[in-house]
């Protein structure tokens, strides 16, 4: 049964040191506000899971909060590489980072297996691929009917999933629109889940019968954080802040610049800042 909470309450109650956590979003609806709250609360020793870790995971890794990253593509979309991630992998700064690397097909299947209550995902993949040799969690099974050898990876079952969505209704049901990514699977696979939303509406009456809706009883906590996906976008609310992604490349290229940016833009502000960040984007899009 979803609780309506403040972001600081929701993160404090649901995210503990040492947890495995997915802040999911497939290039859309990325839950930046929740991740920034985790930075302010100083969570440590996290195992971060995400198909497409980008700027916000670069920030958590650079802050030394992460012991392990499970992922399938780590880049700054439209720009290039993740410089804090590179510094951690190549120079162990600010701490060594373990990586468990997969393909998108494997991660997507593993989330689905987690949501489906299965111990592992089976799919046709990794044929001839080098990741098999460096990731012991990539194994194979033989189909008992055809004899075909198929790839197997463990199901993803995060301790907690954070996602951002367009709308919740008064009961805490959540509507996700546009590129829906793996967020439904991440929430259903996780033990606990926190959803930040752009807007809280009275009801979902009139919504298309096949819309992507997570019932309130699948969600632990709902938080109203307008703009909470910035600099990512929320379809129907504000476009992507492409300039911010480009700017990140410069900030992240220098350890001191990174730390002072995090102090000024994350540690010394609160979640209400996100609404002001998207205001000019909303205006420009009209």
């Amino acid at each position: 049964m979803a609780k309506f909470q403040s972001l600081s309450e929701a993160v404090a109650e649901n995210l503990k040191d040492g947890d495995s956590v997915a802040f999911e979003g497939f290039t859309h609806l990325i839950p930046h506000a929740s991740a920034h709250e985790a930075v302010r609360q100083g969570r440590r020793d996290l195992t971060l899971i995400r198909m497409t870790p980008d700027v916000v995971y670069d920030q958590l890794i650079g802050m030394g909060m992460v012991k392990k990253l499970v992922f399938s593509y780590a880049g700054n979309p439209g720009v290039g590489l993740l410089r804090r991630l590179r510094d951690a992998v190549e120079n162990q700064w600010p701490r060594p980072l373990k990586v468990e690397e997969h393909s998108h097909a494997a991660m997507a299947n593993a989330y689905e297996a987690g949501a489906a209550g299965l111990p592992c995902a089976v799919f046709r993949g990794y044929k001839g691929a080098g990741l098999k040799d460096v990731n012991p969690n990539i194994r194979s099974v033989t189909c008992p009917f055809t004899g075909e050898e198929l790839a197997a990876v463990p199901a993803i079952r995060p301790d907690v999933a954070f996602i951002h969505a367009q709308k919740a209704d008064r009961k805490g049901n959540v509507l996700i629109e546009g590129i829906v990514g793996v967020q439904k699977e991440a929430v259903l696979a996780a033990r606990r889940s926190v959803v930040t939303v752009e807007e809280i509406v009275e009801s979902f009456e009139g919504v298309h019968p096949n819309a992507c809706i997570l019932p309130h009883w699948t969600i632990t906590s709902v938080v109203h954080v307008p703009g909470g996906a910035h600099p990512s976008y929320a379809q129907g609310y504000y476009p992507r802040d492409n300039a911010a992604y480009l700017e990140w490349d410069k900030i992240a290229s220098d350890r001191d610049a990174f730390q002072s940016w995090m102090r000024e833009n994350v540690l010394e502000v609160g979640p209400e800042i996100f609404a002001t960040r998207v205001a000019p984007l909303k205006e420009a899009a009209q």
Partner: peptide
């Protein structure tokens, strides 16, 4: 700019979840 820009979704015939994309359509 990225494989997930809003423009791609707005002009698509349909948009499916990522697991479906890799399972039904690619695999």
């Amino acid at each position: 700019l990225s494989i997930g820009d809003g423009e791609l979704c707005e002009t698509a015939l349909t948009t499916v979840a990522v697991p479906e994309m890799f399972r039904y359509w690619l695999q």
